[in-house]
Nucleic acid binder design. Sequence first.
DNA 1: TTGTACGCGTTATCAT
DNA 2: ATGATAACGCGTACAA
Lengths: 358, 358
Amino acid sequence: MTRRVAVTLEDVARRAGVSLSTASRVINGSTRSVTPEFRERVLGAASELGYLPNRHAQAVARGRSSLIGVLVHDIADPYFSSIAAGAMREAEPHGMVVLGNSLRRPEYEPEFVATMRAQRTRALVLVGSRVRDAGRTRALRAEVAAFLAEGGQVCAVGQPGLGAHTVQPANRAGARALAHALADRGYRDFAVLRGPDALLTATERLAGFCEGLAARGLSVPDAAVIPGPFTREGGHAAALALLEAGPLPDCVFAVNDVMALGALAAFREQGIAVPDDVALAGFDDIPTLRDVAPALTTVRLPLTAMGQRAAALALEASAGPPRLVRVDAEVVLRESTRRPVAMAAATPAAHPTGSRRT
Amino acid sequence: MTRRVAVTLEDVARRAGVSLSTASRVINGSTRSVTPEFRERVLGAASELGYLPNRHAQAVARGRSSLIGVLVHDIADPYFSSIAAGAMREAEPHGMVVLGNSLRRPEYEPEFVATMRAQRTRALVLVGSRVRDAGRTRALRAEVAAFLAEGGQVCAVGQPGLGAHTVQPANRAGARALAHALADRGYRDFAVLRGPDALLTATERLAGFCEGLAARGLSVPDAAVIPGPFTREGGHAAALALLEAGPLPDCVFAVNDVMALGALAAFREQGIAVPDDVALAGFDDIPTLRDVAPALTTVRLPLTAMGQRAAALALEASAGPPRLVRVDAEVVLRESTRRPVAMAAATPAAHPTGSRRT
DNA sequence: TTGTACGCGTTATCAT
DNA sequence: ATGATAACGCGTACAA
């Protein structure tokens, strides 16, 4: 009747002349208690028939599958693809990786976790940023809790407070160190392309940057803090908005690299030279940066390693409470914040800080 | 005994006071033949209990899962992540997407297809390049055939001859057109960073480029055709090798953009200016190109659209033979092949073509 | 050690 | 329209 299309374990058992259970034992290797001779026969039959275990049937019988979920916001964004690559490299030997792409829609995240629950996935890596929207956060947290309750394991990257293991980059400290470094290079008049204020990551970087400046007796005028999407287009638009808002600052900090690249493009289009007319810095050190000119100052995060670490945490047989793994960020000064000759000639003290923007 | 951890359809049926079959009918909506009242009751019970259908059980019962596989060589490479993003966008509404990362190991490809067979995946998108190794190709083709025989659907991108639908970019014609354009800009003395000679894609582009030059009475000296990996590092190394081999040509063609970026970096490190000392062109038009300076001449492929098209082909209920969808490539001339002033001043005829490299 | 039989959560066939 | 009941392919107590 039904067109039997794939070889089943029963076929293998029949051909090997053994029972289904014996065949099962040698194939999945649960217990070693099988005679070498039978073992041979089963293995032979399996390979002759081209047998492939039905993973779904296994998952149903075992009550758990070997799928591993990885969720990112945008797989075409180098930040996410780098982390995803690291996570996949680590996870691949342990099971099949399912990669989800939220397209930056927060409502998709709980949905994805639900899907993974339905798949009885054993481990989950959630890469993203916590968002200020309490409803969304609650929905996501609820799904994660349900997933955990069902015996799954979860590790988040960059979004603490989910009740799961977390790999957390030093957004605040990194931005603070960057501010120090820029102030020490003599920059005095700053602007920040701050990203969406709903994104915790963006907000932390802004806060850290301001703290760092404050430690040097500097600050960013409110009018020079430009919000916008966390993307290249967002950076582009924010840079244009900055130009509209008033005279150019010494130095612009975009809270991530893709935004910085957008800003760089906007400046180029407007005939504004970086770093001669304005300095520019980003955050993340995405691989793409190796090929842009001028070389972009940034705060390096070990993206691939973060993904690997997260996958390892999600995969390890963990007893005990959720762990928080902090990841250091390192300031990398490059061409885009080389002080222009005119400024470098003067002593920093010669530059009164007075806020140009009121 | 067993810790019942997830809500099952039976729980829902019991709570709704209906039979398992009825509950199944309203949940999966197979037949509409359910009284509105019962329907309400089941839906209510399901949502109260937080019921999630076990996809594995469904897959076992139905004999086919709703998984969709996408295989790429390197998810961190913009070429692949762009195509993958397109494929995922198209596929996501139809099922869960499983993304595989071969890390450019050809032996992983048949393995991935086998895994997808084991998962009873319904559709498969294979992104990559056909490799000259007959053994590998045969292994892959065999797995694809088995997958097809089991009722699955497949679409390949850039690797024809797999017995599946194929989305095939115009590698040859694109490279030919590029050669024409460069010759028309006055370049006479060329080198090609040709990639691995085992990769069909690389070979086709090289061949097309040579054809295009030949049509203008030009050619590339053998010594100026440098092989190497299809990656940024490969391009970097190949550019250095080119420098070692002899004097600089007018113009270098790297058979893909990431190689061109590697070459660009190598030139920059060596103090060689592009395009003033040497012109440079790539192939693909990856998104990254928007941020490199000088802007890189390339041959544009609609990467995202190709991914979408491939997923659509793999998903569509196709009767009939495998289809071959050709995708046009478009030459995009940018700054990196602006003719230097000195050359532009002279007439092309003033530049004897004589091969500098013997 | 091996085989029998039952269970996993669904779908689908068949009477009712 | 609804409800038993038999698959689906596999894992695994339990008995032999």
